[in-house]
Nucleic acid binder design. Structure first.
Lengths: 336, 336
DNA sequence: TCAGGTTTCTACAACGTTGTAAGCAACGTT
DNA sequence: AACGTTGCTTACAACGTTGTAGAAACCTGA
């Protein structure tokens, strides 16, 4: 019960192409012909076959967004903004979960179903520049960390500066034994490295000695990892008076562990995160964090991609920076 | 720089169809021919054009998942399970945000890009059975609420029974002034109606009189709405000793409002939610909730859809129930 | 040796759409 | 009356793939 242009054409007594013209809003169609065609379309409940249209046009109207995990609130929030921004360009977004694994990411970068998408917005964890070269095909925009000298467009947030600022905020509160949670030595840990660099820079500026015992690794950046790392820190006896967690879910886990240990936040230990996810605005206490402008990130990414898709594919890669700000809340200031 | 079967065929000195046969793993290809073709494929970095394949086969290998909002953790977690289950069937999942609006939902139900997807898993808020009739095209599976006598397959969770059980749990703790947060009068409020029905049923069973002043509406089911509703309840002077929130984000908002009001959970007010999102396992206090088996829901939905796509499209609609359990945590029991 | 199969490969025709080029009116201009 | 212009419509040929049908080569066993 699926109809084609041909069926509509026969019913309306015109050529297939005329129906196509009506469907595509072509100007020079006589009003009465148009009416007849539209009637036939309605009667048959005709809808164009997108596969055929795509084949003919070489465009699918679909872009992909590849993120490590959808149930990490940061990526879910980002996804929402990307969907909105893409809709304004008439694109549908195919969301792809890479699970952060190098193999999965490579597959995503290679193009999902390849000809299935017009472009790709990609938030990589494990990939390096090498993995990305040799992708002749689909236009791509990278989010987040800079893959050095990568061949693709980028939307970056200055992780080092942001981490430095929020650490400086903790120092400004008079804290001196500031722990960090979330360090990673794996190649996936690009964000971790940058945020750690910001943290150490802030310490150095304030003349506070870097103490490795205060830096806790976290294999992933989930709540459970944050809680575990915090418990580890507490039981190791290093007695921090503040913690900078490399993302908000880690921080929420840390809050939980501190609560269980009977410590007060921020009186005993101040806690800061990174990402500004919605949970942090309602947690107890509310969470001080770095708030990257997610909407801006999404919008810039979509625009860069649009530029590639419609424009010059050989132009040198562009890099746009998205702003961030500090959101100071109860977990450091004690005030909402 | 994009190659077609024809290019590979020329390079390997065989026909186009032979290359196609190699690509599709057709059996009867001589090993040396196969090798030659594979070499050519590798040299040219050939990848099939999916639009063309889809056109020819009438299948796209893509199913859509339409949910109200991706940044509601419940849906994000569900999406993840759906993606996993679909991958086992070789499908890619296109995630569509309907924003819960009737118009958007109708559009989603009508099929995203129509021929673009083989099937649709749909978690409707606003749609009724009427909106769904007249969809001859794409196979569809509905999640959650029963759209009465709807024409499509369903995966349901017994909302009434679950709500009754968790309310009974609160009653079992000795609470008598049990508030409910999340009621809705709009047509979108199907879940709300069912959960409210479970709540009142439990009260009736225990011989507790239903008090309308204890039932707080919530326009949406976000944290902010839960917090607002809780503040409203507290300031209205009804003095509840327990609250059943119709989902977890509402409950997290309520926890926040109770905290701000200086009330202890669960000593002064016990709090229960619905959905078992990850946040609730780390919140302070951790959240008692109804835990629907999301993985099961996703798996059943994908299987129902597979049945429609590969099998009999005219078979009568099926309805499968997914189990749930109560997750009792600090917010009612005081113990983790 | 040959009939009858099996294996291996190919030509052709779709799938449903749109760009191109061209045809045919009807019109205004010279 | 001849001409170009404009508006409307159409036939045809792609887009890149795969199913069908069949040809050619190769086996097998009598």
């Amino acid at each position: 019960m699926r109809h084609r242009l041909k069926d509509v054409a026969e019913r309306a007594g015109v050529s297939v192409k005329t129906v196509s013209n009506v469907v595509n809003g072509y100007l020079h169609v006589r009003p009465d012909t148009r009416a007849r065609v539209e009637e036939a379309i309605a009667e048959l409940n005709y809808r164009p076959n997108l596969s055929a249209r795509n084949l003919r046009k070489g465009r699918t109207g679909v872009i992909a967004l590849a993120v490590p995990e959808l149930d990490i609130p940061y990526f879910a929030e980002l996804a929402r903004y990307v969907v909105t921004a893409a809709a304004e360009h008439g694109w549908t977004v195919l969301i792809d979960q890479t699970e952060g694994g190098p193999e999965q990411e490579r597959k995503a970068a290679a193009g999902i179903g390849d000809h299935m998408i017009d472009g790709l917005i990609f938030s990589p964890l494990a990939l390096t520049a090498d993995d990305l070269s040799g992708l002749d095909g689909t236009p791509m925009v990278l989010l987040g960390e800079r893959v050095d000298h990568g061949p693709a467009d980028h939307v970056v947030v200055d992780n080092v500066a942001a981490a430095r600022e929020i650490t400086a905020h903790l120092i400004g509160l008079g804290r001196r034994r500031i722990a960090a949670i979330g360090s990673q030595r794996t190649p996936e840990g690009a964000s971790a490295r940058l945020r750690l660099a910001g943290y150490t820079a802030a310490l150095a500026e304030a003349g506070i000695e870097y103490d490795e015992a205060l830096v806790a690794p976290a294999p992933a950046w989930h709540r459970a990892d944050g809680a575990a790392a915090m418990r580890e820190l507490l039981s190791s006896g290093v007695r921090p008076d503040a913690v900078f967690c490399f993302n908000d879910t880690l921080a929420l886990g840390a809050l939980r562990a501190l609560h269980e240990a009977g410590l007060r936040v921020p009186e005993d230990v101040a806690v800061a995160g990174f990402d500004d996810i919605e949970d942090g605005r309602f947690s107890i206490p509310t969470l001080t964090t770095v708030a990257p402008d997610k909407e801006r990130i999404a919008r810039l990414a979509v625009e860069l991609l649009a530029g590639r898709i419609d424009g010059d594919r050989e132009a040198p890669p562009r890099e746009l920076a998205a702003p961030y700000r500090l959101a100071l809340r109860e977990s450091t200031t004690g005030r909402p």
